[in-house]
């Protein structure tokens, strides 16, 4: 780690005022400290958010919007009765990620802002446009088993590794942020960005903004949801491909479908046109393939990750089946429902 100045702001305003390009907020630290040890993150100062009041609440308002404070730990969020009752999808996705120990530390805000697991990004002795703009992207012709197949650019083909964010995308959550000029609400969809020609930027968050909460609108999907994660071992591994689905049903028809993919792009991947293919109809298995094809339209592999296209197609169909059948995937029993 490079030497840094450690600070514990007592109020949110103080945290925001103290924030610069060269400083970092410290949430659980499970990603930031990790990257600092690898000399990938080199903050001049750390603003430890952990003592701040008012960022640890989970509440539900009269409209049914669930609001989860940015400092709520992933473990607490997944275990919270309001989350379990109203958004079991979110709990499932969180529990499919990392480990009990990491989830005890990791925060909602930090999870949103965790960085890619691209091997090259982590290895300071290799080139990487995300880590050092302009040095190149060796992943394109290198080891890219875990890399993206959608929304890539010639500059970067990394994925966003979060499970939680995939569920948030399917839930159309809103990220509440605060900066020097006040509060902003950003749709999850717009929160993470594609690499384009600036792969060093993961999100649309301004350097001086802090995430304060995540809000999830009320949805009545009951048990018609799933978080299906496929990975290289049955636990403690990032997704090769994951699928989050909520399927609201009315009289046997799909009234609203949301599908988000993880492990395939620089952000959770959604395609409204694909979702529309099932809306207003019965959840006919025969159409699941079409939904998958639309979601994966334009997908391309880079060698090692070619398989993700086929795998994602199968996973989407299965996840839709699970949601339709109201048999959400358990993260404990590893048999796929």
């Amino acid at each position: 780690m490079r030497p840094f100045h450690y600070e514990r702001p007592r109020a949110l305003e103080e945290a925001i005022a103290g924030k610069t390009e060269a400083s970092r907020f410290l949430g659980g630290g499970t990603n930031l400290i990790d990257l600092m040890k690898y000399d990938v993150e080199r903050p001049a100062s750390l603003l430890d958010l952990n003592r701040l009041e008012g960022l640890r609440e989970v509440e539900r308002d009269r409209e049914g919007t669930l609001r989860i404070g940015a400092l709520v730990s992933n473990a607490d969020a997944a275990a919270h009765p309001l989350v379990r009752e109203h958004h079991p999808l979110l709990a499932d996705a969180i529990l499919a990620g990392a480990t009990p120990q990491l989830r005890n530390m990791a925060t909602m805000g930090g999870n949103l802002l965790q960085r890619t697991r691209c091997y090259y990004f982590y290895d300071r002795l290799t080139p990487c446009n995300k880590r050092e703009p302009g040095t190149g992207c060796p992943a394109k012709e290198g080891v890219n088993r875990i890399h993206a197949i959608l929304g890539t650019s010639e500059h970067c083909i990394a994925t966003h590794p979060s499970d939680m964010c995939v569920a948030l995308a399917a839930l159309e959550a809103v990220v509440v942020v605060r900066g020097p000029s006040g509060e902003r609400r950003i749709r999850t969809e717009d929160f993470h960005r594609l690499p384009g020609d600036a792969p060093e930027r993961d999100t649309t968050l301004d350097a001086r903004e802090v995430v304060t909460a995540i809000e999830i609108p009320a949805r009545l999907y009951g048990r018609h949801h799933t978080y299906l994660k496929l990975r290289d071992r049955l636990s403690y591994a990032f997704a090769l491909v994951s699928v989050a689905v909520t399927m609201e049903m009315q009289e046997g028809r799909v009234s609203r479908l949301r599908v988000a993919l993880g492990g395939v792009a620089h952000k959770p991947w959604r395609v409204p046109e694909a979702e529309a293919l099932l809306e207003g109809r019965g959840p006919e298995e025969a159409r699941f393939g079409a939904v998958a094809d639309r979601l994966l339209q334009g997908a391309r592999g880079y060698g090692h990750n070619d398989f993700k296209i086929g795998l994602a197609r199968l996973a989407i169909a299965r996840a839709l089946h699970q949601a339709a059948a109201a048999t959400p995937q358990s993260h404990v029993a590893k048999r796929i429902a």
């Binding site: 450690y6 499970t30 400290i33 990790d34 750390l46 430890d48 473990a75 480990t99 120990q101 005890n104």
Partner: peptide, 25 residues
């Protein structure tokens, strides 16, 4: 780096990977 669990301790009643916790925190 949080990849193995060998450093697990119980911090304020919760298990955590102590390698990723800053002592200051």
């Amino acid at each position: 780096h949080g990849q193995c669990g060998a450093c697990t301790v119980i911090l304020d009643g919760k298990r955590v990977n102590s390698c990723l916790v800053l002592a200051a925190r």
